[in-house]
């Protein structure tokens, strides 16, 4: 099946809703209510973006955010800002291990939050060959530490025994 690739010459995107965009192709065809999704939300957030129609079928595809025009890129970035919530942890305040359950309180770019981690072996993952750490809490919410080395020494100390 042929994939409809969008770049700055073939189509333009406008944000029409919290998470919908409108695609206008060069030939004037308009596709409404497309939902952009990252295909690599963790490893390549700005590349390989699929646009799903109402039936969750792929209608169009953006290979790289740099290949589309600025207005379209901003439209996608705005949608993603709403859709993807992966708070970036800036400080680890405290890790409490009482009763065998692991509970973290952290500062993130979205504010302070506490959460529980169910399985410290599988829910705290350092990405292979990077400094990023992805965390999943007991409710399946995701968190990210973009750069372990950039953390302050207290945070590093708290994190240390879980990596």
């Amino acid at each position: 099946m042929k994939r409809l690739y969008i770049d700055r010459y073939t189509g333009k995107l406008e944000r029409t809703d919290l998470y919908f965009v409108r695609l206008t192709l060069k030939d004037g065809t308009v596709l409404e209510d497309l939902e952009p999704r990252r295909l690599f939300p963790i490893t390549r957030p700005n590349m390989f973006i699929t646009l799903l129609d109402r039936n969750e079928k792929e209608a169009a595809f953006v290979r790289d955010l740099t290949e589309i025009d600025d207005a379209s890129r901003i439209a996608l970035e705005e949608c993603f800002a709403e859709y993807y919530m992966i708070p970036k942890i800036t400080h680890l305040l405290n890790a409490d291990e009482k009763f065998g359950a692991l509970s973290w309180s952290v500062d993130t770019d979205r504010g302070r939050i506490s959460f529980q981690i169910r399985n410290r072996n599988s829910d705290i993952k350092k990405l292979w060959g990077t400094k990023r750490v992805i965390i999943r809490d007991s409710n399946d919410n995701r968190y990210e530490i973009p750069d372990v080395d950039a953390l302050d020494s207290h945070s590093k100390h708290v994190l240390f025994s879980y990596l």
């Binding site: 809703d17 919290l18 859709y83 993807y84 919530m85 992966i86 809490d137 409710n139 919410n141 995701r142």
Partner: peptide, 26 residues
């Protein structure tokens, strides 16, 4: 339901769409 969060949306009889409540998966 989105990624790591969700939103409750209401469409009123006058046609307007409101995001009334944002929530995490908790």
């Amino acid at each position: 339901r989105m990624y790591g969060n969700g939103v409750m949306r209401v469409r009123l009889r006058d046609g307007t769409l409101h995001n009334i409540f944002r929530f995490t998966f908790s």
